[in-house]
């Protein structure tokens, strides 16, 4: 019951967030210096085209009407049409977003695979040389920009050693995994640094807890204690942190896709910015913000389910 009321309370909190997202995206396009249609068409715009585009975007109406229309369109899933690609923004997003989601999911898995064992070593041998080496190298990883890491991995493992493709996206699922491996590692590096740091201190915290002393006094093997009691409890906060990092991860995906020439939503975003294709920029910003809010929601629910104290 506590969980159900928590979920409904949490769903209510989503309303102001969604309203804010809508307002920001609405204002965003109206921030365009001068007339949006002229900005889209450039200097050589003809008056007739300007009027047509303004009417197409509903920009000839008063602001409140524009906003109502905007909300109505979004609620019905109509995000407008791309100016250059001449297709609906919704279909573009449906085509490109799965690539980005696959990339971020792979990055999250790789980050977990990197950070869990290393955090375990660092926490159980606290203060040792390996602890310091692990934490030091992650600190350096955290200071490296994503595009720089990507460029170096691409050059070394793609261009020089030829172990991985230098960009693009495969056709079969396995081929896609192969193409996305280097980009996912790039994206995973700074995330794993954040996860590692959190998990290390969580493990240290749990090891000192009374229920672990109790398990030990029952004579359970230390291996069993570590796996069943310590790691499992320490992972709760790490999973939460992983959920909260989704925004950073998606932002990183925009850059990674550009570096590796992956046809995902991130690269579409950058291309649309260069091409001044504002309906696409607007639609993508909206879609990404929705994904982040929904991930936050899911994270909170999972956390409340794992740890009933949260729901209270």
């Amino acid at each position: 019951m506590a969980l159900l009321s928590f979920i409904s309370r949490r769903l209510l909190q989503l309303i102001p967030t969604l309203a804010f997202i809508l307002v920001v995206i609405f204002v965003l396009v109206r921030l365009l210096p001068g007339d949006p249609a002229s900005a889209i068409l450039g200097d050589r715009a003809r008056d007739a085209d300007v009027t047509r585009i303004n009417a197409e975007l509903g920009l000839d109406q008063p602001w409140p009407v524009q906003f109502a229309l905007f909300v109505k369109h979004i609620v019905t899933g109509d995000l407008g049409n791309s100016i250059h690609l001449k297709v609906s923004v919704a279909s573009l997003i449906a085509e490109r977003l799965p690539v980005t989601l696959m990339l971020t999911a792979m990055a999250a898995l790789i980050a977990l695979a990197l950070s869990v064992p290393l955090a375990f070593v660092a926490a159980t041998r606290r203060g040792s040389l390996s602890d310091n080496a692990i934490r030091g190298s992650f600190q350096v990883g955290l200071s490296m920009p994503v595009f720089y890491v990507g460029l170096i991995l691409l050059t070394v493992f793609g261009a020089k050693l030829r172990w991985f493709p230098v960009g693009g996206f495969g056709t079969t699922f396995l081929d896609q995994l192969y193409h996305l491996f280097l980009p996912a590692v790039t994206l995973a590096l700074s995330l794993s640094a954040i996860l590692m740091r959190n998990l290390r201190s969580a493990i240290i915290g749990v090891v000192g807890a009374e229920y672990v002393d109790f398990a030990r006094s029952k004579g359970l093997s230390s291996r069993l204690i570590m796996m069943r009691h310590v790691l499992r409890n320490a992972l709760i906060s790490t999973v939460t942190l992983l959920g909260l990092q989704i925004g950073t991860l998606l932002g990183g995906a925009v850059i990674t896709e550009t570096v590796f020439a992956i046809p995902g939503a991130g690269r579409l975003m950058i291309e649309s910015i260069y091409g001044r294709d504002y309906p696409v920029v607007q639609g993508l910003t909206f879609a990404l913000a929705i994904i982040v809010s929904l991930t936050f929601l899911a994270t909170d629910i999972v956390q409340a389910w794992l740890d009933p104290r949260v729901a209270r």
Partner: peptide, 24 residues
């Protein structure tokens, strides 16, 4: 608190890129 919730649910880099895209 609501403002904080709304702001952190925006992917910051995406929003910054979008704003810069619009402002130039």
């Amino acid at each position: 608190g609501r403002i904080v919730d709304a702001v952190i649910s925006f992917p910051q880099l995406v929003l910054v890129i979008a704003i810069v895209a619009v402002l130039g």
